[in-house]
Design a protein around this nucleic acid. Structure first.
Lengths: 183, 183
DNA sequence: AGATTATATGTCAATAGTGACATGTAAAAA
DNA sequence: TTTTTACATGTCACTATTGACATATAATCT
């Protein structure tokens, strides 16, 4: 999966692994996170598969920055993946729900404390989403987006995922509050 | 993580891997899924660590059913995990959101079709949740829950996770409908 | 009687993801 | 000037997860 996030960003413009990493942190990390270790190794794997190519940035002699570019094969792989619709709902893995499920074994106080911590965390996350400026994302591309990428059109979908994130955090907050009230 | 789900269920009563598998499918799979391959291998690993013990069910000579029992060490491991609150929000990994994020590259028709498929899937999931009878879960234990497990108390938390699931599906449906309308 | 589905348990190779260790430059702050 | 933070890239061991292959009995359906 991370593979397609990398191809997706490289479709906007050639970039280094680090740039992709920061873009992910600011955008997709809310629904798909990855450590830099996985990003760099996956980029190398994609290069071996011929989906991306790379070259060292020569503009700075000391700094070693490897710039990745999407190949035509890579672009086709991305589009083919996008056009092949998912036939199952996304699987959810939520550790807190597992913990709540088995919380009959705990003291009410222990549960309450944990839910309050989660409440604060999700409140922060919601505020973070509210502060996000979609325009900022495009400015992180060092080079201008290439060819047929219409950023206004793209940002409609970016905004949709952001809206989902905000609703999700609000759902989480409401659910936590109700559960807290019921204890 | 699966580790604690296994310990959690074994805390209710001794069971076979298959029983745990069916329990997971009916309950926690909505927020933490696992294939039987992982369940069986993890049970073996837990036995090696001394957190569970197992013996073959002798009541049927032909059928090979391995019954797992939580050890005291295992029970302490479960309680210790439960009482050590999570300090981060659960990480989300949602493939559809990744796909939507990069959907500026697709035809509106392709996106619309996929969202309609997802709409149907999430509608089904919501109906499935509505049909769930919490009472049914306890009847799946072959032996009566042991010692200090108060099923009425437990089921309060089970119900909370189910409620979360229903709200989540409703959120998903609303979000899909709005996104569909905006295309 | 034969076919199919549910019960039941396992292995294994491959892929994905985590988190620590390692290293160096550049910029900003104290 | 020293320290800290940001930039930048990598390896590696370990753990987790997937999904296919394998096998056998029991129950139900046609």
């Amino acid at each position: 999966m991370l593979k397609f996030i990398l191809l997706g960003f490289l479709n906007y413009a050639p970039m280094t692994g680090y740039q992709i990493k920061t873009l992910i942190e600011d955008s997709t990390a809310h629904f798909w996170h990855a450590y830099h270790s996985q990003i760099y190794t996956t980029l190398r794997a994609l290069e071996e598969q011929g989906l991306v190519s790379s070259e060292m940035d020569e503009s700075d002699e000391k700094l070693q920055r490897r710039v990745y570019t999407l190949t035509e094969v890579g672009r086709q792989a991305l589009l083919s993946w996008l056009n092949d619709a998912m036939m199952a709902p996304s699987t959810v893995k939520d550790e807190l729900l597992v913990r709540v499920f088995f919380s009959g074994q705990r003291s009410a106080q222990s549960v309450r404390e944990e839910l309050l911590i989660q409440r604060r965390l999700h409140q922060q996350q919601l505020e973070l989403y509210r502060a996000i400026n979609l325009r900022g994302w495009t400015s992180e591309f060092e080079t201008e987006p290439v060819g047929p990428v219409d950023l206004a059109h793209e940002s409609k979908f970016w905004a949709a995922t952001l809206k989902f994130g905000m609703r999700y955090e609000q759902l989480y907050l409401d659910w936590l509050d109700e559960l807290l009230a019921s204890l």
